[in-house]
Design a protein around this nucleic acid. Structure first.
Length: 201
DNA sequence: CGGCTGATTCGCT
DNA sequence: GCGAATCAGCCGC
């Protein structure tokens, strides 16, 4: 039997100091959005960790602050959404405490609720709805205007998922961060082994 | 201020 | 398998 709203993740889940731990724990959790009455839910299948000022792949590397990255310095539990390649809205979860600019990029979901709405939002057909960071944001209707909002209530929140059993977690390098020199080699991408919703192949 | 690059995706040469 | 779409941030002039 499912519980109701009480299974929304508490903020102390996000505010732990080890972003790798939070990233792995987010696998299997359920990302939810509710815009204009359209409820959508997706199980988190794939994530990447970004470790604030010590990570050359992170926008907040060396403590950089701009209007965009300012969100990552907030306390854990809010969303950081930014525009990539001028087109795609990428959704991250801010972790750690205030002024520790860590974040977890949500890279892929397994749709659970609202596939019809997602399909309508994408316009283009015969594609998977949520197997990449840009496309999942589009399916869930998340945009840069939602950056900075907290994830404890509608329109965007994250719920407990089923307990993960008999599923291996693959740890490997992050995607598209070749510019990060030695940090590009860190095994900070996590996904469920053999899950068909993982991005790329 | 111009030019380049990117945590990507889609469509077609 | 390559390039366009198209914008925020950074660096050099």
């Amino acid at each position: 039997m499912k519980k109701d709203s009480s299974n929304i993740l508490p903020y102390d889940f996000y505010q732990r100091s080890n972003v790798l731990e939070v990233a792995k724990d987010l696998l299997g959790k359920v990302l939810c959005t509710a815009f204009e009455g359209d409820l959508c839910k997706g199980r988190i299948i794939e994530v990447e960790a970004y470790n604030g000022k010590n990570d050359k792949a992170c926008h907040a590397n060396k403590g950089r602050r701009t209007a965009r990255t300012e969100i990552m310095y907030k306390e854990g539990g809010c969303g950081y959404v930014y525009l990539c390649y001028g087109i795609h809205h990428l959704f991250n979860v801010v972790t750690n405490t205030k002024n520790n600019a860590d974040a977890v990029l949500i890279r892929a979901l397994q749709p659970i609720v609202g596939m019809d709405v997602m399909t309508k939002r994408l316009k283009s057909n015969n594609k998977k709805l949520t197997n990449g960071p840009g496309i999942l944001s589009k399916s869930m209707a998340i945009t840069t205007q939602h950056t900075g909002i907290f994830l404890g209530q509608p329109p965007i929140w994250i719920e407990e998922g089923d307990v993960i059993v008999n599923t291996d977690i693959v740890e490997t390098t992050r995607i598209g961060v070749g510019y990060a020199e030695e940090d590009a080699l860190l095994p900070w991408r996590f996904y469920m082994k053999d899950n068909p919703w993982v991005s790329k192949k």
